[in-house]
């Protein structure tokens, strides 16, 4: 059974000599919700650009549902929908025409194209704006417009390059719900994002790319299990001047009402609370210092950077 996306030995060197991708290989299985993460300039957009036929690969092979993008481009592209990072529609065109025209590019006939355009614009809350020129939309609406446009031909593989960048929290949550719905309905989704809680919340599998190479390709669950420790912030009732002395835990005072505790992998939190209670310190609330995936990501990228500087 062929994967939704198969990338084999893909490399890209730009005209100015910059090596953006160094023989990367990975697969995304059918039905997956896959995160492609990496710092700025790591090669994420180049990879997705090649898959979207917007960037010429230097070498390597891309297959979409078993169709070679170089040799069977038309068949491969039919399966693919792309939501790019930058707005790439005619700003003077109306919302409806942008989506309806895209349907035409896929050879979709009149009534079906009309129905699909209405369906996806309604789903994404843009039907009331159908006659509005795209330039008049808010940033969030423009992002939703690009999603509606990418879905109008009902692709089996949807690529979203930072779809929630600059989108407010409420809208981001509703977009997450929508993406989970279409994933549950069978669409394979590849997501790049700088919001790592987004990747942790939505995605099943992950590839981390750094300096043009894949440094990790596994499930989110397996990746998080690699975390050696987690940092928690405890809000406390008392006014402390120095950090309490708690054995087995590394603890510091963040401010007078706030403690920062590092908990090692496999270490129980019960003992921590017992020791704090014994010192008459009441914990009011507790939260992660940062997103777990974010901690993992930062440590991984830092390690990669150190390894490069040592070479």
């Amino acid at each position: 059974m062929s994967a939704a996306l198969s990338i084999q030995q893909l490399s890209k060197t730009y005209g100015n000599g910059f090596v953006a991708l160094k023989n990367i290989s990975f697969e995304v299985q059918k039905g997956d919700f896959f995160a492609l993460l990496g710092p700025n300039g790591a090669g994420k957009s180049t990879t997705l650009g090649i898959v979207s036929s917007l960037v010429n690969a230097t070498s390597g092979k891309v297959e979409i549902f078993g169709h070679d993008l170089a040799e069977d481009m038309t068949a491969a592209k039919k399966f693919l929908g792309v939501v790019p990072q930058e707005f790439n529609f005619n700003a003077f065109e109306t919302v409806y025409n942008i989506v309806r025209t895209q349907a035409g590019f896929y050879g979709m006939a009149g009534t079906l194209a009309d129905q699909r355009s209405e369906h996806y614009l309604t789903k994404l809350g843009l039907w009331d704006k159908r006659d509005t020129p795209a330039r008049m939309l808010s940033g969030g609406m423009k992002r939703r417009l690009m999603i509606a446009r990418a879905l109008v031909h009902e692709p089996k593989l949807l690529i979203l390059d930072e779809p929630t960048a600059g989108v407010d929290i409420e809208l981001r949550r509703s977009m997450w719900d929508f993406l989970q719905q279409i994933n549950a309905a069978g669409t394979t989704i590849i997501l790049t994002t700088h919001y790592l809680e987004e990747a942790e919340f939505l995605c099943k599998n992950i590839a981390i790319i750094d300096q043009g190479a894949i440094v990790q390709n596994t499930s989110i669950k397996a990746l998080l299990q690699q975390l050696d420790s987690e940092s928690f912030i405890l809000d406390i009732a008392e006014n402390l001047q120095v950090a309490p002395d708690v054995s087995d835990y590394q603890i510091s005072l963040k401010d007078q009402h706030c403690l920062l505790v590092e908990v090692k992998k496999g270490q129980s939190l019960n003992n921590l609370f017992v020791q704090l209670e014994a010192q008459n310190i009441s914990v009011l609330s507790m939260r992660n210092k940062s997103n777990r995936l974010e901690e993992m990501f930062i440590s991984m990228v830092e390690k990669n950077l150190e390894a490069k500087s040592e070479q």
Partner: peptide, 18 residues
């Protein structure tokens, strides 16, 4: 050129149109 400048040429390039 406007389609290039506004990048909406990408709408055609990602599609299966030859």
């Amino acid at each position: 050129y406007s389609a290039k400048f506004q990048r909406n040429v990408e709408e055609m390039l990602v599609s299966p149109m030859p």
